[in-house]
Structure formats: structure tokens, C-alpha cells
Amino acid sequence: MILVNNGSSDGTQAYFDSIPGASPVHLPQNVGPVNGFNVGMNAAQGKYIALISNDMILTSRWLPNLIACIESDPGIGFVSPGANYVSNFQQISLPFKTLEEMQVEAKAYNVSDPNKWEERIRLMPVILFSLTDRLREIGGYDPRFYFGEFGDDDISYRYRRAGYKLVYAGDTFIYHHGSVTTGIDQQQNNSLQVSRQIFYNKYGIDSWAEGLPNMQLVDAVRRQWSPRESVSILAINCCIGATPLAVKTFMKQQGARNVRLTSLSNQEKYLVDLRTISDRTFYFDTSEDFRQLLGGEQFDYILFEHGYSEFIRSFDGLNRYLLPSGHLLA
């Protein structure tokens, strides 16, 4: 257990020093959450590393569950559980009024279940659980995200762009007090907007506006889904791919063994991220590009997320690219 005392002056140092077998690291001043995690990463010696903030309460079987998840696929970069207080569709609601009741409910809930593992475009790591060497390969957290916000988005993008998957372990619940680490900075330093701009300057992408799935489209797929083993999806202008990935994950959870995703975008900035989650990725500019890229190919599903009205004014209809029983969702 590595305990990072991030410049505390409230007795934390004496408390950390009193814990048998722990490895405390004392910093003379607060260097921010992500830099504090990097200090812990540099001190780590185990095969795996779990980065845990001071506002989390761990629960029964959290560690075996996360190990089972990450060991299921050598292509996984990092996994993270759900919590009572978290964004990014990672919230798990359990009935409890006290922390004692929470632990009882969590023990009953935390049963390893691969059907609750979901590949994601990004994760909000209430715990970032990774191979230690893999986290070092990525370079840890980017110190530019001093306040913490959007550092999780950034590290998610870097894992994916290095060829690794991100998996939400929805079979595991831990308790999160919420915004203890970053709440003061949000009030005093406008840290959310400052960090959001740092992320945009780095990637040219707004992680909130362009990195979240459109759940209306995902729910539309769920409502009319009929079981099948093989599915082909054409995703058009779905930003970095959060929506088609959520659809693909749903289909696999429903038993589809072969889900083939083709992504087309008329914005080149999205291509690098689309390639991390798609079987094929193409850029198009004109209707002629579109016809040449797809030829006579047909799909079970066409997902169209942004610019559909402009598209149908300039391009031929999309029905020709649908199989007879196919669905167009826009």
C-alpha cells in the first residue's frame, strides 16, 4: 500500500507513518491530484496498480473483480468500477442509508459478471486499475491537468490511441463521497472550464460535447433489437464513436458474437479515435466519395448522429445501403 501525503497539514503524515507495512510518500506541498497519482505510480512495484482517491470507500471483492476483468483480455488498458456518485453512465444505485448498510448491499452486488463489462470510449476512473508497466508506458497522468478534471479523459484517449481497450466493470460497486478532491478548486479556480480548455487545446475535441454517447439512439436500438449472431453497423458522423461503441457493446451483451462496425466521418479530426473502436474507418467529403467507399455494400444498422438534415439535402438516400430488414436511426 502506497500512501501519498499530498502536502497535508492535518495529521496525515503521522497517521500514514503509523500504518504497518505501508509505504508512505510525503510531499512538502500539494501538487494536485494527477501529480500525486504520478508520484504513487513511480513508487509502485506490483504487477497491477490501483489509483484510489481519498474520497473512496472500498467494498467487498472490489479487487478480485477488477483483476478478473482486466485478465480477461490482454488488450485491455485499464478498467474501472461503478459508484454511487460518478458521471459518464457509470453510476450504480444501491439501497442504503448508512455506510454499514452500503457494505452489505455492495457485498451482495459485487459478483463477477462478464456480461456487465462494457468497452468504453473513455472512463471516469473512480479507481484506475491497470498493469503498472502499462500505466508507465502511457506516461501516467498529464501534469497539465493540475486540478484533476479532464485528466481522466486525457488518459483514456492516450490508452486507446496506444491500442488498448477501456472497460467499465459494471459488476463492481464502490462508495464515492463525491468532489472532495476537486470541489474547492471548482469553486475557487473555475477548474472545470480551465481543464476543459486545456483538453480542447491538446486534442481539438470537446470531450463533453463530442465524447459522450447519444443515449436516444442507443435506446432506439435496444427497443427494436431482435437476437442474432452477426450484425453489421454503418456509423456516419458519430464524432469519436461513443454512440456506435455503446450500440456494439449492447449487441454483444445480447449474444451477438460478430458485430462489424464501419465508421464514416466528414471531419478528419475524428478519424484517429474512430480507428480505435471500428473495424473500418473512412473519411468522406462528397457524395461520390460516399458511393466509392461503400459501393453496393449493405448493413443491418445505419447510425447517423450529426448533420443528417444537411446530408440528405446533398447526398442520395441511405436506404440503398440497408439490408431488407435493416434499420436507419438518425
Rank of each mutant, 00 (worst) to 15 (best):
T98C: 12
G77S: 08
A256M: 03
R196C: 08
P81I: 04
D171S: 05
Y308S: 08
V180R: 13
N35P: 07
S309T: 11
A108M: 11
C238T: 15
A50R: 04
S195E: 07
D273Y: 10
A256R: 02
N38C: 06
I52M: 04
C69A: 15
R160P: 03
L322Y: 05
R136Y: 03
I240N: 02
L329H: 09
N30T: 07
L303H: 01
P24H: 04
D17L: 14
P143L: 06
S287G: 15
L271I: 15
L63C: 09
N115E: 12
S9T: 15
I57R: 15
W208M: 12
S207C: 11
I174Y: 01
W117A: 00
E101R: 10
D113C: 10
F311H: 03
A43R: 13
V34T: 14
I52T: 02
G178Y: 11
D285A: 14
G211M: 02
P20L: 08
L166C: 02
G82C: 05
D152Y: 02
N201E: 15
L271P: 03
A22D: 11
E288W: 09
I52S: 02
E149I: 04
K252E: 15
G82Q: 04
D73T: 08
E105G: 04
P114D: 05
Q298H: 10
G32C: 07
E105K: 15
S18C: 08
G82H: 01
E210T: 08
C239P: 00
L123H: 00
Q29H: 14
R134F: 06
D316R: 12
N84S: 10
W117M: 06
I277D: 00
S287F: 11
P95A: 10
M102F: 11
Q103I: 07
A50C: 11
G204N: 10
H177P: 00
I121F: 07
P95W: 05
N54Q: 12
Q216A: 15
R61S: 14
Q298P: 06
W208Y: 14
R61F: 11
D133N: 15
G241F: 02
A162C: 05
L66V: 08
G255E: 06
S232E: 08
L212P: 00
F199E: 01
F290M: 07
R257H: 12
L318D: 00
N190V: 08
A106L: 09
Q91K: 15
R260G: 00
Y48P: 01
P74T: 10
S87N: 13
L329K: 05
I236W: 01
N214R: 13
R160T: 03
F173M: 09
G183K: 06
S80Y: 03
L293Q: 09
R291V: 12
I174D: 01
G40D: 01
G75V: 07
S278W: 02
T286I: 11
V86Q: 06
V194M: 09
G11C: 12
I312N: 09
V104G: 07
T12V: 13
S112A: 14
H327C: 09
G32K: 01
Q253M: 10
I19K: 12
A209C: 08
E149N: 13
S314R: 14
G211W: 00
M41L: 15
